[in-house]
């Protein structure tokens, strides 16, 4: 036997042993090892916190640890790509959001995954509303007055966003278009700095994520004039929705849900769906979400696919119209 053959033999032997040690994948004993939950954002962000809350509970129900694996970067596209290419055996899941599964595919010039074709949607778990707030110095008490003010001085007012291509920008751009306003976009790096800019009056308006702006609205430091969801928020029952203020059909929120790579066994998916829906709807988990400015929402895989398709179309149009192109 030549040296090369010997090496090949040893390698083949080792591989056989490894294969033997490797647990057979299948439903009978799912999960057979810790489940990896890829979160495409850095540890500590709002997506990560919700993922960790759910992961802990899911681990208890599955009888195997669910390990959160943060793969942040590039608007969530790096982690999501890793998840799309992972072995579809139910031991790798990802927390997808409006950002990773709708906005990034629509706004980036190149994304190496297809949000619909490369994933098996499982269920939504939570959604976060957006709230339009003004600096208290702005002379407008509701959306109608604000639109009138903006139209009387086109190109003079500014709004802050959490970054180019963020939901906070797209929400305002949608309103800009719906109401025929020309309010100038000033991008900041994240919700915190954008909130500070609105508080300090550096900009006049911000369509901010609820957890970031609600405390300031409640304290009277920012004036809430409309919520972006289809229903009013229980936290601010007196603030009307954008839709009821004269722009029917307007809806912007950030959803978070679970996805598995395409090809994950159906039985595994339905088991996960059942567990996750129960977890998200449990009262104590719903309360935890509430504290993070989110509310529990669940649905079916078919509904998730439909939601993604509608939103890809909706945001795709805004992104094109506003000329947003991320490279």
């Amino acid at each position: 036997m030549s040296m090369n053959n010997k090496i090949a033999g040893v390698v083949a032997g080792a591989l056989l042993v490894a294969a033997g040690l490797m647990p057979a994948s299948g439903l009978a004993q799912y999960p057979t090892k810790p489940v990896r939950l890829i979160v495409a954002f850095p540890a500590g962000g709002s997506t990560d916190i919700i993922a960790r809350l759910v992961a802990q509970r899911l681990g208890e129900k599955l009888g195997q640890q669910v390990i959160v694996d943060n793969r942040g970067g590039a608007g969530g596209t790096i982690g999501t790509e890793i998840a799309a290419k992972a072995t579809p055996d139910g031991h790798t899941l990802t927390m997808g959001t409006t950002s990773t599964h709708v906005i990034a595919p629509a706004a980036y010039a190149k994304v190496n995954y297809d949000p619909v074709k490369d994933f098996e949607p499982i269920t939504l778990v939570a959604s976060t509303p957006y709230l339009l707030v003004l600096h208290p110095g702005v002379k407008a008490n509701n959306l109608k007055e604000f639109v009138a003010l903006a139209k009387s001085q086109p190109g003079k007012l500014n709004y802050a966003s959490a970054g180019t291509g963020s939901t906070t920008q797209l929400a305002m751009e949608m309103l800009n278009r719906a109401a025929g306003m020309d309010i100038v976009h000033i991008p900041y790096s994240g919700n915190g700095p954008a909130g500070a800019a609105a508080l300090g009056g550096q900009v006049q308006a911000l369509f901010g994520s609820m957890p970031a702006v609600l405390p300031h609205a409640q304290a009277g430091r920012l004036r809430p004039i409309a919520v972006g969801t289809s229903k009013r928020s229980p936290a601010l029952p007196n603030v009307p929705t954008v839709a009821e203020s004269g722009y029917p059909g307007f809806e912007v929120s950030l959803w978070l849900g679970f996805f598995a790579p395409k090809g994950t066994p159906k039985a595994v998916l339905s088991r996960l769906q059942k567990e996750l829906v129960a977890i998200a709807n449990s009262p104590d988990m719903a309360a935890q979400f509430e504290k993070n400015g989110a509310s529990a929402v669940t649905n079916t895989p078919a509904e998730m696919t439909a939601l993604m398709k509608t939103e890809l179309d909706k945001y795709g149009k805004v992104i094109k119209a506003a000329g947003i192109q991320l490279k």
């Binding site: 490894a18 040690l21 490797m22 990896r36 959160v68």
Partner: peptide, 11 residues
Amino acid sequence: IELPFPLFWWR
């Protein structure tokens, strides 16, 4: 501190 690295090539 529970970093999520696989210990060997089979996991």
